[in-house]
């Protein structure tokens, strides 16, 4: 299956790390890379039931004359070809539309605020909107390029977690890297999780790709997160909660992303496997 990763190039050292991460991801999963070098600080993404205006922070427009060269250098080093996206449609004269027919999108933790804000536990509001509306999973990179050698999926039993698990299986299939599943059991037994797997017809695939299933029945959640290898690609599902709701109710995703520095691949609530 042919897949595409969408990357917005930021012509700064931080952007270089992000692009390296994208290149690594593409090589691992056999996806082709699509790079957009922005010409304006804003663009629109039309999703199924939402339109998101993405206001890039000004660092994306730093010295556009070197941007293309820098990007090409990195691509040559990585020995990978990429397609550079030129927006075809414009909602207004300075407001291009970017199509949303991708299979993955790579985002740093923040794309509309200053990069000085980027830190653990912070995901910018635009990135959240994209996660919530997109049908493709979002690759949120660590701030420094880091190779991953295993895949870790968080599976908590909910519908989104099932999506995340399916996504994990898909990545594992494409990259031939084994999968580890982590479950923090909350008052439920192992059997109930296996029941969910069975109902989703995933049992067979689980056997084939998953090397280990860690189920923590005791211990604090944060403590158990320590067991995740530092060089793993962490895959998790996100709820469609708004920012306020997640702050009030908390959420596994918030906890995870605030204490883990790994690369995260987040499947949003609209993630669909049909494509």
């Amino acid at each position: 299956m042919h897949t595409q990763l969408f990357h917005i190039f930021r012509n700064t050292p931080l952007g270089r790390e992000t692009l390296l991460q994208s290149i690594y991801f593409c090589k691992k999963t056999g996806s082709s890379l699509i790079i957009y070098i922005p010409e304006f600080t804003k663009f629109l993404m039309y999703f199924e039931n939402d339109v998101v205006q993405i206001d890039l922070d000004n660092s994306y427009l730093i010295s556009p004359e070197t941007a293309l060269r820098h990007a090409k250098e990195l691509l040559d080093q990585g020995n990978i070809k990429a397609r550079f996206l030129k927006p075809k449609n414009y909602t207004a004269s300075t407001l291009p539309d970017i199509s949303t027919n991708f299979d993955f999108m790579c985002c740093p933790r923040s794309i509309s605020d200053l990069s000085s804000k980027i830190g653990l536990g912070y995901i910018g509001p635009r990135v959240r909107r994209i996660v919530n509306s997109a049908r493709f999973p979002i690759l949120i990179t660590s701030s420094v390029f880091k190779k991953w050698r295993s895949i870790a999926v968080f599976f908590g039993g909910s519908a989104n977690a099932v999506n995340a698990l399916k996504l994990g299986l898909r990545i594992s299939r494409a990259s031939k890297i084994p999968l580890t599943v982590f479950t923090h059991a909350e008052n439920t037994s192992k059997e109930s999780y296996e029941e969910i797997i069975k109902n989703e017809n995933l049992a067979e695939e689980m056997d084939r790709y998953v090397t280990k299933w860690h189920i923590f029945e005791s211990g604090k959640f944060e403590e158990n997160l320590y067991n995740i290898p530092h060089d793993a690609l962490v895959i998790l599902g996100a709820y469609g909660h708004s920012l306020i709701k997640s702050i009030i109710f908390g959420g596994k995703m918030e906890t995870i992303q605030s204490i883990i520095t790994n690369n995260l691949l987040i499947a949003g609530p609209n993630y669909a496997l049909t494509r």
Partner: peptide
């Protein structure tokens, strides 16, 4: 962070291409 102009073309554009999706702002 919106473009200048009176906006009606934007409405027509979004109606014809994206099923009338428009930004909240």
């Amino acid at each position: 962070k919106e473009g200048a102009g009176h906006g009606v073309p934007e409405v027509i554009y979004s109606v014809s291409r994206y099923g009338g999706l428009m930004r909240f702002r």
